[in-house]
C-alpha cells in the first residue's frame, strides 16, 4: 500500500507492506540510514526518530501506520551543511566513539531539548535511558546534552 509521509521536511510517497516497520522503510526503501537497527525490539534506541513531534523507536512502528506522519531523522538536523548545536556539542564533548548509537542519542536529545530548555541530570537520564551505548560510558553524553542546552539557550 502507498503511504505518504513528511520526512525531514520532504513529502515522500512509498509503497509499504504491513510486515515492514517504519525503520525498514526508512532504511531499505528510502535509504535514510541514520536510524540504525540495534535490536529490533525497542530495547536499544538506535532507531530513534522524532515521530509527530515525539521520540519513538521506529523499529516498533508498523509501516502503514506512518501514513500521514511527520518524521525527523538525524539527516534532517543539518541545515545547508551546517551542524545543529546538538551535533556540535556531541563533537566538543567527545560524546561518541563507534558512532552506531549516536543518531539515536542525538534524536532523543533533540526531543528532550524541545520540551525542556534546561534539563536536570535526572531529566537527561530519563530521556536517554532508552538509548544504549556500549562505548562511551555515557558520561560525555550527559555533558554534551548539557552543553547543547547551553548553546540553544544562548541562541534564543
Amino acid at each position: 500500500m502507498m503511504i505518504k509521509m513528511t520526512i525531514n521536511g520532504d513529502v515522500v510517497e512509498v509503497d509499504v507492506k504491513p510486515n515492514e516497520t517504519l525503520l525498514d522503510v526508512l532504511r531499505n526503501k528510502l535509504y535514510i540510514t541514520g536510524p540504525k537497527e540495534g535490536c529490533g525490539n525497542g530495547e536499544c534506541g538506535a532507531c530513534t526518530v522524532i515521530y509527530n513531534g515525539k521520540p519513538i523507536n521506529s523499529c516498533l512502528v508498523l509501516a502503514p501506520e506512518a501514513d500521514g506522519a511527520e518524521i525527523l531523522t538525524v539527516e534532517g538536523l543539518t541545515k545547508n551543511g551546517k551542524l545543529h548545536p546538538i551535533q556540535e556539542a556531541f563533537i566538543e564533548e567527545n560524546a561518541f566513539q563507534c558512532g552506531f548509537c549516536t543518531p539515536g542519542f542525538i534524536m532523543s536529545t533533540k526531543a528532550l531539548l524541545d520540551r525542556k530548555k534546561n534539563p536536570t541530570r535526572e531529566d537527561i537520564v530519563e530521556a536517554l535511558a532508552g538509548n544504549l551505548c556500549r562505548c562511551t560510558g555515557y558520561q560525555t553524553i550527559i555533558r554534551a546534552v548539557e552543553k547543547a542546552a547551553e548553546k540553544l539557550g544562548v541562541k534564543e
Binding site: 540504525k36 531523522t73 539527516e75 542525538i106
Partner: peptide
C-alpha cells in the same frame, strides 16, 4: 577533535548494514 566526528554525528558514517 576526532576526525570521524562529522560523519558520526550526522548519521552519514557508513556501516555494512
Amino acid at each position: 577533535p576526532r576526525v570521524d566526528a562529522y560523519e558520526k554525528v550526522t548519521g552519514t558514517a557508513t556501516y555494512v548494514t
